[in-house]
Simulated assay, not measured.
Amino acid sequence: MINDILDVAKIEAGQIKLSCQPCNVEALCQSSLVFIKQQAFSKNIQLESEIPANLPPFTIDERRIRQVLINLLNNAVKFTPDGGKISLKVSYIPFLDNAENINFEGMPCDTLEISVVDTGIGIAPDQIKRLFQPFVQVESALNRNYNGSGLGLALVKHLVELHGGEVRLTSELGVGSCFTIALPIMPFCESSIVPEPPLPSTTEAITDAIAETPLILLAEDNEANITMFVEYLSMKGYRLVVAHNGRMAINLAQQTHPDVILMDIQMPDMDGLETIQRIRQIPELADTPIIALTALAMSGDRDRCIAMGANDYLSKPVSLKQLVTKINAYLTEP
């Protein structure tokens, strides 16, 4: 959230300059999808992509447009119920097919459109205009249980407009939403003096590269805590998958084989202590580091957690810096 605040402030102060290079759009889109794959998997959300073959390279600030796409995809996962669907669609529109597309000089130009379509809770028409303002979340009985800073869409709008483009939104309550970024194809920004490393040329290579990022399984039932942990640890470069109860944690641990498990002790259905004990009975997870988290902080809590099979223990409110230190310690153990 702090990074988002700083980015918005820098953009409004004119301190962010685009750094553009020819970009492989298919690789950009596929790598963005990989970042939200685990979150979608945990909610049984189907991911689809529709990307035309043989797209030409486009000159954009690849890092910033990836930031835009991941923001939109994260929102789609957040507001799409379990079992829903999210689609990422790309269209290349030559100016001859749409004479309304113009560049900064008032000349027609080609346009790249990327849409994120979900089957989520939707947005009321009277709320759409407010949606792209910083620190604003729409008021709705459908979405008031979803936490967030309200900065993501403001940042999306700013970054797309820096490219000379626009963000479009169509939405229907209870049906879903479609966010489209339209980028005019033109030399609107200076090329980087030092080009970014090229992306791998295939989806498999991209998936393999991102799969090397440590995967954290967070077992937690409190949505505010989930938002805090996910946003902070994602910012630190980890991938996360979230389980909302003990049984789900066991299933996801077996399916994803995380590098570290963060286990809340007070959970419904099956508490964290029983969950840790059952995970330790699964041979392939017997040595997976588990850090127990508890809000009770009573005498003997640490000993009970260690006795059940946890490697470490932190009491809530958790120091996020201390948590990252502990995670890194287990990741670097031989």
Rank of each mutant, 00 (worst) to 15 (best):
V241F: 01
L262Q: 02
G246I: 12
A209N: 11
G176A: 08
Q133R: 08
L69E: 10
N101T: 12
K326H: 08
L296I: 08
G152C: 02
A76E: 10
I65G: 03
S171C: 06
T213P: 00
F179C: 07
Q39A: 14
I36H: 05
A292L: 03
N103A: 09
C29T: 05
S149G: 08
A211D: 09
T202N: 11
V230S: 04
L112Y: 04
E284P: 07
L323I: 07
S234R: 12
L72E: 07
E284C: 02
P134L: 08
D97G: 07
L96M: 14
A76K: 04
Y330F: 14
F41N: 13
V116Y: 01
H244M: 10
V318G: 04
G174F: 01
S19P: 00
I265W: 01
S87T: 15
P187T: 13
D208H: 14
V8K: 06
G148S: 10
P125N: 13
A209P: 00
I290P: 01
Y92D: 06
L240Y: 03
K157W: 03
R64K: 15
D110W: 00
V25K: 11
K37Q: 09
V318Q: 07
R304W: 03
I290Y: 02
I121K: 13
L293H: 02
D259W: 03
L162N: 05
L112S: 01
S19Y: 03
N222W: 01
L153T: 09
S149F: 03
L215V: 09
P268G: 04
I210K: 11
L159T: 05
T227R: 11
G246H: 07
Q254M: 14
Y330R: 07
I5W: 06
K43E: 11
L233H: 09
V8H: 05
V194I: 13
I306C: 03
E220R: 07
A182Q: 13
A286K: 14
K37G: 04
L285C: 05
E166Q: 08
L218F: 01
G106L: 02
L33K: 10
F188A: 10
A9R: 11
I265N: 00
A297T: 01
I327T: 05
D287R: 15
L72D: 04
G148H: 09
C189V: 03
L183I: 15
P214T: 04
A219L: 01
S319E: 07
L6W: 04
